[in-house]
Design a protein around this nucleic acid. Structure first.
Lengths: 94, 94
DNA sequence: TAGCGAGGTTTGTGATGCAAACCAGTCTAC
DNA sequence: GTAGACTGGTTTGCATCACAAACCTCGCTA
């Protein structure tokens, strides 16, 4: 039985991961717009993905304004790849 | 933004729905074996799917032994179709 | 009549997704 | 120099829910 990674499976995080998979790096506000999540949800989901080792979070400043950069780690890319495979296997059946 | 149906999205229920999509009708014990869920989980997830109108539950007897037959309703099939489309859209991006 | 298995359902609880409240720093108006 | 509003987030509180374990009912067996 192919297991689905719960961390990625959650729709909000799936969206985040899918968005990050398409780019090299993204900032918080770009993700906020693209994902259509609230700040709170985005923040906590990103925290969860970081905790899982799937995204790297880099906080810096653009001038005087805080800037948070996010990118998928290798583990994150690989987990997403596995997730896609597992999902296709399940959907293939139906 | 394509929304993912939460009722179907849950992995246990996704498995149930995918299994039911492949057959005309199934009994509880067949699903129990195929899904590798516990009786309790299968029972409650089936109840949730019934409540959502996605599966029809028909209780009868095979001789003196209770027999529960499950099948996907039209709404269930259509929801599963929509789910697959939405999921492919998300995975396509990544 | 005690025990056992089939076929399920109900209960308890820990995790968690979401929204709203909060916070620290910056900029503008006055 | 300070009141207010905005930016860029984080923390808190609640309500939901998935899972496992306990429970239930009926029939069979010895």
């Amino acid at each position: 039985m192919t297991e689905l990674d719960r961390v990625i499976h959650e729709p909000a995080r799936l969206r985040i991961v899918a968005l990050l998979a398409g780019v090299e790096e993204a900032d918080f506000l770009w993700l906020l717009r693209e994902s259509a999540l609230t700040k709170g949800n985005l923040s906590s989901h990103v925290a969860r993905l970081e905790e899982a080792g799937y995204v790297a979070v880099e906080k810096s400043f653009r001038g005087k304004i805080p800037l948070t950069l996010l990118r998928l780690t290798d583990a994150g890319r690989s987990a997403f790849g596995g997730y896609k495979r597992a999902m296709k296997a399940v959907l293939g059946k139906g």
